[in-house]
């Protein structure tokens, strides 16, 4: 199955300007096998476990990857915004599914990942400084979750 733009590394070059750094390892746009279904009605169930691919695995350090997924439907965040506790230095993989095109921003980093409606996108990052960082949609202004980096 053809997959357009499996690697979206656009966020990488914006990194240097970030004041409080969360290092981006890579940003992988979900190449959905169930794409036609997802295009019409994205469901939370369809978003999980989309992120891993061999290419990405090899670029990650051999540490635990904290995987979280979140979706937005009709302006509601599912699961509702929560705090995800991660250790400093851990890799976090956030899979986001939206029902409208938007840009997902991870606070404290320069990650601004365009996400198309119905196409799960996975943002992968390494937790840098300690603190609580919000992950939000840019245009919708919705808080998706908070990363509590300890």
């Amino acid at each position: 199955m053809p997959c357009e733009a499996p690697w979206e590394s656009g966020a990488m070059h914006r990194l240097s300007a970030g004041p409080i750094m969360v290092l981006v390892l890579g940003v992988l746009t979900g190449c959905a096998s169930g794409e036609t279904v997802a295009d019409e009605q994205p469901t939370p169930a369809a978003t999980s476990r989309k992120s891993t691919s061999p290419a990405e695995k090899s670029s990650s350090p051999a540490e635990d990857v904290v995987e979280v997924s979140v979706s937005v439907r009709d302006g509601k965040v599912l699961p509702p915004p929560r705090r995800v506790e991660v250790q400093q230095g851990a890799t976090v993989s956030i899979t986001v599914t939206l029902d409208v095109d938007d840009v997902v921003h991870v606070h404290g980093s320069d990650i601004e990942e365009p996400v198309q409606a119905g196409r799960p996108a996975t943002i992968e990052l390494v937790a840098g400084d300690q603190g609580v960082f919000e992950v939000e949609t840019h245009d919708g202004g919705l808080a998706l979750l908070q990363l509590e980096v300890r």
Binding site: H107, G108, V132, E134
Partner: peptide
Amino acid sequence: MGGRDDLP
């Protein structure tokens, strides 16, 4: 502002 909050 700043997008970072302190840890509890």
